[in-house]
Computed example of a mutant assay.
Amino acid sequence: MSLISPAARDALEAWVGHQRALKGAAENTLTAYRGDVTEFLAFITAYKGECQGLAALARITVTDMRAWMAEARSGGIAPRSLARKLSAVKAFYRWLAEREGFEPTAMLSARAPKFQKKLPRPLAVDAARNLIDAVEMQSQQPWVGARDVAVVTLLWGCGLRISEALGLRGADAPLPETLRITGKGNKERVVPVLPAARDAVDAYLRICPYPLQPGQSLFRAIRGGALGPGAIQKVVARARMQLGLPASATPHAMRHSFATHLLDAGGDLRAIQELLGHASLSTTQAYTAVDTARLMEVYDRAHPKA
């Protein structure tokens, strides 16, 4: 951040603190926000040829924004990533304008590049089952295979995010019939635990070589520390290559599959939204890859005037 003025640096850190304290943003999200805004501020400093204090930042124009976006695009950044960066910069400026008392309309009028949203690709039921079976075979150590199966089963059987599954502690075992999960934005939800998921976790715990400590991670790495998401992503990648599944068959795809398979079995879209912890029903619709006809079917069956 050496190219950024002390005032701008302090404002950025104050904004990040605001996002953490009042918005409940996750640390990974905050890291991305800080990086995106830092890149923008560094560009503006170089583009203007001098250190940009808060007064100078208040005079940023649409032309300046376009120059930044053109520079980013020339560096090979994808439209989707640039749109995310622009969103972070605009959020920072809204906060800064309110705090410093300037009009941000010109800067906020910069438009994000258009991109086609990639819908998640859920796996078919048989493919999800086969993937879990193949995951178990990727390790020569039985307890590691059992561990990986337990994690992936929680993703598919309970609709957990990988961070939520790996965030479970020893105090959560043995798993109860329902789990209280704290997800994005510190939002809590209650998730039923299927017997298959409970059994998979129990099987792992029976042969895990490390003692179960209430305050420590439930899922342990090879050397006994907390298991990270990278290990699960790698083992799923090896399993999908063995099965000939597409690259979209990721750990997160198992969460997509949880939602789609519930809906296919007659589950209510609103209830699935609650299970996934989505703030918006449109997000759940994207996860489940439902079409308009399927939504109308749910509507016709559930609406009191139907």
Rank of each mutant, 00 (worst) to 15 (best):
P304T: 06
I60G: 07
G277V: 00
G224P: 00
A239M: 10
A279E: 15
A279S: 15
A259I: 05
R169D: 00
C208R: 06
Q52I: 04
P195S: 11
D36V: 06
K48L: 12
T292W: 13
A26V: 08
A302E: 04
M296R: 15
A127T: 06
W15R: 05
L275V: 01
P209I: 01
L168A: 00
Y287H: 09
P6W: 11
G145K: 01
P195I: 06
L269C: 11
P229A: 13
R294Q: 14
R111I: 02
R121N: 12
A226S: 15
V201H: 00
R255M: 07
V125S: 12
A253V: 00
A221D: 05
P113D: 06
G266H: 12
A286K: 08
T182G: 08
P120I: 06
G267M: 06
W95L: 09
R84K: 10
A42V: 12
L194S: 15
L96S: 00
Q233V: 05
A173K: 03
L175N: 09
T38D: 05
L41Y: 05
A171F: 11
A150T: 03
V89E: 02
K187N: 05
W95G: 03
A293D: 15
M137V: 11
A26I: 01
A171D: 15
P246W: 07
Q116L: 12
A127V: 03
D133S: 12
C51K: 15
A56I: 03
P214S: 11
R147C: 02
T250A: 09
R121H: 14
I44L: 13
T31G: 14
P246E: 11
H303L: 04
R147H: 01
A112D: 03
L22H: 13
V151G: 03
A11V: 08
D291F: 07
L166N: 08
Q216N: 10
K234L: 14
G277F: 03
P122D: 00
A173F: 02
T283E: 15
L160Y: 02
V151C: 01
A25E: 12
M137P: 06
G225E: 10
I4K: 02
Q273M: 03
Y287K: 08
